[in-house]
Amino acid sequence: MDETGENFSDATGSALSQESRPAVVEAREHVSLNGVHVMAAATVRAHLAGGEEEWSRFAMHWEDLSQDRYASERGTCRLRRYGRFSLTPATGDLSQLPHCPFVQPDRSNPLYVDVVRHFDPLTNAFAADPLLRSVVSLLGHVAGALDSAPDWIVKVHPFRVVAAADGEGQPTPEGRHRDGVTLVSSLLVGRSNAIGGRSTVVTADGAELLSTTLEEPATLLLSDDRSTLHGVSPIRPLDPARPAHRDVLVTTLTPA
Rank of each mutant, 00 (worst) to 15 (best):
T4E: 12
E6T: 12
N7T: 04
F8V: 06
F8G: 09
D10M: 05
D10E: 05
D10F: 02
A11C: 11
T12L: 09
G13H: 07
A15H: 04
L16A: 09
L16V: 12
Q18K: 02
V25N: 01
A27G: 09
E29I: 05
H30G: 06
S32D: 12
L33I: 00
V44W: 00
R45I: 04
R45M: 10
R45P: 06
A46P: 02
L48Q: 06
L48M: 10
A49E: 11
G50Q: 11
G51C: 07
G51I: 08
E52K: 09
A59S: 08
M60E: 14
W62T: 04
W62C: 02
L65V: 04
L65R: 09
A71M: 09
A71G: 05
A71W: 00
T76C: 12
C77Q: 10
R81H: 09
Y82W: 12
H99Q: 14
Q104T: 07
P105S: 05
D106F: 00
S108L: 05
Y112E: 04
F119Y: 14
P121E: 10
P121M: 09
T123V: 01
N124D: 14
A125Y: 00
A125K: 00
A125C: 01
L131D: 10
L132C: 08
V136N: 03
S137F: 01
L139P: 15
G140M: 06
G140F: 01
H141S: 13
H141V: 03
V142A: 07
G144C: 07
D147M: 00
S148G: 07
A149I: 04
D151A: 14
D151K: 03
D151R: 15
F159G: 14
R160F: 00
V162K: 08
D166F: 00
E168H: 10
E168R: 08
Q170R: 15
R176P: 15
R178S: 15
T182H: 11
L188W: 05
S192G: 03
G196E: 07
G197M: 00
R198Y: 02
V202A: 14
D205G: 13
D205P: 13
A207R: 14
L210C: 03
T212I: 15
L214K: 02
L214M: 07
E215Q: 10
P217C: 07
L221D: 09
R226M: 14
S227N: 12
S227H: 07
H230G: 14
H230R: 13
H230N: 11
I235E: 10
R236M: 06
H245W: 12
L249N: 11
T251C: 11
T254M: 10
